[in-house]
Write a protein that binds this DNA or RNA. Structure first.
Lengths: 159, 159
DNA sequence: TCAAAGTTCATGCGTTTGCATCTACCTCAA
DNA sequence: TTGAGGTAGATGCAAACGCATGAACTTTGA
């Protein structure tokens, strides 16, 4: 891999990080998180777009939290009546997580307001073409992040 | 703003979020964070690419942390001899933050290893052209995130 | 068949975070 | 000049987090 290609990659990643931090800060400052925090919303949203119950470790894939932290976050949502947690009949170790009616309502309401803020910020910054590019690029990066286990062919780094 | 343009914006943002979480998780799993955590590194890196001392609130712009959390994170880095914090002679309220020699060395060493991981993941997922696109898009989004104060024209959402 | 190894989630515990607030200092207008 | 209002950063405290580990269950291979 060429030197400049590595450099390009790092600049692109830093750019993504900066954009993420900047916009997260902006969105977090909006007065819509009084009922659920952004992280809680993240979980509610992930559950909402998944049909059928989810396992805790499935949730963990999409959320940037340790497994214990996620476990307790879910517990709090259960206590507040937004998420339902039942034992998985097919696997005694696991749990099945799903939104309650209240949870779905909450997600939808907060999500609607949040989407307005997102649209406002993103459309102000990007053209349609750029939004499509970002969507595609993000998808590829996310796919790259996931698959570690295909083949354990330990091909050590060249550096 | 058209409906589909809002939708496009939200899909792009979600894509960015997913990519961010996925790769952050991957990078965080690398065995290079035993000396400084990712957040601490973020601060060291931000200081390293800034010439001259920084103010705490300047640091805060780039880091996704509350002001008190950042204040204490910096305090820990000071205690560990990686950051130097001195009173600002020009503003008695403020502090001047800079890397110590040890801090600079640490940042450079960890940063070098991290950059390898970033390059590996990003170059595996994206073409050169896509990396350039991401770099440009991130820059625009970050710029959009910053400026709130131009005009407080409260133009309420159409939801 | 059954014990060893792996997986899934929960819990103990020390650390870190965010919110609210405080102190100290700066700015600006009267 | 001065005092009201604003800004920079620190601190008290409860909430949330990550790491290490535990408990319960499943899977695997001999």
């Amino acid at each position: 891999m060429t030197r400049s290609r590595s450099r390009l990659a790092n600049e692109a990643w830093e750019s993504l990080l900066t954009a993420h931090a900047s916009l997260m800060k902006r969105f977090g400052a909006e007065p819509i998180w009084d009922e659920v925090s952004m992280r809680e919303y993240d979980v509610l949203y992930t559950l909402s777009k998944h049909d059928g119950p989810m396992r805790l470790y499935e949730l963990g894939r999409g959320v940037l939290l340790s497994q214990p932290a996620l476990s307790r976050l879910v517990e709090r949502l259960v206590d507040r009546g937004l998420v339902e947690r039942t034992a998985d009949p097919a696997d005694g170790r696991g749990v099945r997580l799903a939104l309650t009616a209240a949870g779905r309502e909450r997600q939808h309401r907060v999500g609607g307001r949040h989407a307005v803020d997102v649209a406002r910020a993103v459309t102000a910054a990007l053209t349609d073409e750029e939004m499509r590019q970002l969507e595609a690029i993000g998808r590829k990066l996310a796919a790259q992040g996931e698959p570690q286990p295909p083949r354990p062919n330990r091909q050590e780094a060249t550096l």
